[in-house]
């Protein structure tokens, strides 16, 4: 009932561990698969190891989550080994996330990562914490296309480009990426935000700004996915990510146009999140008379 296909891979359900959640290590990816994820995405790796920002790197304030981990990761050379082990043992498709600070770096990372034979690559062109000339690659058509072309030239593996919601024209950006060779769109990354502690008179995150996730991100993600689907047409897969914490959230994301659904913050909030969300999806579909995920579509009448 829940199985879907994504870039030539069959997934037992459309729920994908989102990048950045629960780490770079093979064992955490294997665990997410064991806990019911349909596919798993590793935390982004860069060419060199990165320590990331100092703490506080993630805080919760009511239903709001804000993080600026700062892309800490052990570097692509160590990550290749982790991805290779995950591919061997996870039993579900493994998506390796890469993050570069120039299009050339994205190309080199994609080329190196091929060695680990992940099922897909995800190019994190939208981390909101690292400034590249004051903005992210996915905040302009031109930069997003440059990253896409560099990754396309470097690998024959299917790849997705992960976009920021912090733009007025995400549909246009996604369409340009698809035309430049992206096989899939992941939308969205976190939304830029800030929390202030009035007693400390300081921004709470060490980096001051961070990425907003959790429940508050869902309407932003739904609108982004909807806009992307309208722009790219029916054939291009979309991994809809942002604020999905229960089965109904996942159904909504698919109705907005997503092929698969990324689950991030909810993995920390709910024990056994994947199995619970999948169960809730099944229950909804059974009650409402849906037989497959592809039948979940929006009535635009």
């Amino acid at each position: 009932m829940l199985s879907v296909s994504l870039c030539g891979n069959r997934l037992r359900n459309p729920l994908i561990l989102a990048s950045g959640v629960r780490g770079n290590s093979a064992e955490l990816l294997i665990r997410a698969a064991r806990e019911g994820a349909g596919a798993v995405t590793s935390k982004s790796c860069s060419l060199c190891p990165r320590e990331g920002h100092s703490n506080p790197t993630m805080v919760a304030d009511g239903g709001i989550f804000l993080n600026a981990i700062g892309l800490s990761n052990p570097g692509v050379e160590e990550e290749i080994g982790e991805i290779r082990r995950a591919v061997r043992k996870a039993g579900v498709p493994v998506i390796a996330s890469i993050v570069g600070f120039s299009p050339e770096e994205f190309g080199r990372l994609a080329e190196r990562m091929e060695e680990a034979k992940p099922h897909m690559i995800e190019a994190d062109a939208s981390c909101p914490n690292i400034e590249h000339g004051g903005k992210m690659f996915s905040q302009s058509v031109e930069d997003a296309v440059a990253v896409t072309k560099a990754v396309r030239a470097a690998t024959s593996l299917p790849f997705s480009i992960k976009l920021s919601p912090d733009v007025p024209n995400i549909g246009q950006i996604a369409k340009a990426c698809v035309e430049a060779g992206a096989d899939c769109i992941t939308a969205v990354n976190t939304m830029g935000g800030m929390l202030i502690d009035p007693y400390a008179k300081k921004a709470v995150l060490h980096n001051r700004f961070g990425g907003l996730s959790g429940h508050a991100l869902k309407p932003i993600a739904l609108k982004s996915v909807y806009s992307i689907r309208k722009a790219v047409g029916d054939g291009v897969p979309i991994i809809g990510t942002g604020g999905v914490a229960c089965g109904l959230d996942a159904v909504e994301m698919i109705m907005a146009g997503a092929t698969c659904v990324g689950v991030g913050t909810a993995v920390a909030l709910r024990n056994g999140a994947f199995r619970q969300i999948a169960g809730e999806m099944r229950e909804f579909m059974r009650k409402e008379g849906y037989r497959s995920v592809s039948e979940l579509s929006l009535d635009e009448g």
Binding site: G20, V21, R22, G23, N24, S25, E27, L28, I30, R31, K43, G52, N55, T57, M58, A60, F65, N67, I69, S72, G264, T265, V267, A268
Partner: peptide
């Protein structure tokens, strides 16, 4: 430890998360 709440995965010990 970074996030402390089971999200970032940094405090992993094998497949366990020390924080969560």
């Amino acid at each position: 430890m970074k996030c402390g709440i089971g999200a970032c995965g940094h405090c992993c010990m094998g497949e366990k998360l020390v924080c969560a």
